[in-house]
Design a protein around this nucleic acid. Structure first.
Lengths: 166, 166
DNA sequence: ACTGAAATGCTCTAACT
DNA sequence: AGTTAGAGCATTTCAGT
């Protein structure tokens, strides 16, 4: 599979990426006005970014609190290898679970969950507790979330096999 | 400010929300075809959802790995109240920090960070370590992320002051 | 790779049910 | 709240640079 190298993305691509992360419904015409390119030129660049997978899709950003899920928590799960959450029941069965990450360290899993009420959260924690030792972190407030992916000047030359395989 | 009650959202609104979270660039015409409504009717419903803040915006979903940030980690910070991260330097100054949550428990902060390399991550951890005791969880793999907000049948009647204030 | 113009298709307003 | 119809734009394709 052909993958987009960072080196193939010029300043204009990054600006397009920035604008589209801030407003995914921008028209190509308006986008073109902002980065000083014609609509067809923009459309082609965006299509290339999509094909390369840099843009994985577009989505409405829904406010969970206003959609009935005001509670956020992080659950850290130290599974017993036998009945680990990732091996037995899929975490997708729990609608509260919005993210699942496998962690380094002590065979741990990090879950980000959203609940509609403390009762909902309590029930979830009880059910998940069956899979192993758990650590609960309830979020009181979120300073910010969903920072856009931006260009980094601090990127070092890649020294992995993939990096040399051009 | 007038806020959208969950009870004001019917099945059609939830379907629209589902479709727009899956593809934020869907045309009103196509959206209308999917939920069996005309384009102007859809447009008005979407505009209402936007005004109510249920839809907070639209954005391109960028794959961080393909945009030069393959590393993900959660950093748990136990600040000394005096020079807490949230009080002194704003965490927004660190481009690696993509989420900041204030936690219950021992005056803790949960940071979600994305780095371009282990060196980048190491430098960040070093700098943030100055703000207090820290616990690092490097993500090895992500099972999923960005699950859409969906309707929940399990919602209980709200018993808070806000719940009664209709 | 980008521009400009023409055809197509979508969005928006308005009049009405 | 919803529909249909028409005017106004955006998108797409294509020829040209």
């Amino acid at each position: 599979m052909k993958t987009f190298q960072s080196t193939e993305m010029d300043e204009t691509d990054w600006r397009i990426l920035g604008e589209l992360q801030a407003d995914g419904r921008l028209s190509y015409k308006e986008l073109g006005r902002r980065v000083h390119l014609s609509a067809p030129a923009i459309a082609e660049r965006v299509r290339r970014l999509e094909t390369a997978g840099v843009i994985a899709g577009y989505g409405a950003k829904v406010d969970p609190a206003k959609a009935g899920q005001p509670l956020l928590a992080f659950l850290q799960l130290r599974c017993r290898p036998a009945d680990c959450l990732l091996r037995t029941t899929s975490a997708e069965d729990y609608p509260e679970v919005v993210e699942v990450h496998k962690l380094s360290g002590e065979h741990c899993t990090m879950l980000k969950v959203r609940a509609s009420s403390l009762g909902d959260l309590e029930g979830l924690i009880e059910k998940l507790g069956a899979h192993g030792e758990m650590r609960t972190h309830i979020v009181l407030s979120t300073q910010y979330e969903g920072r856009p992916v931006e260009r980094r000047d601090d990127e070092r030359p890649i020294t992995t096999a993939e990096g040399w395989a051009r």
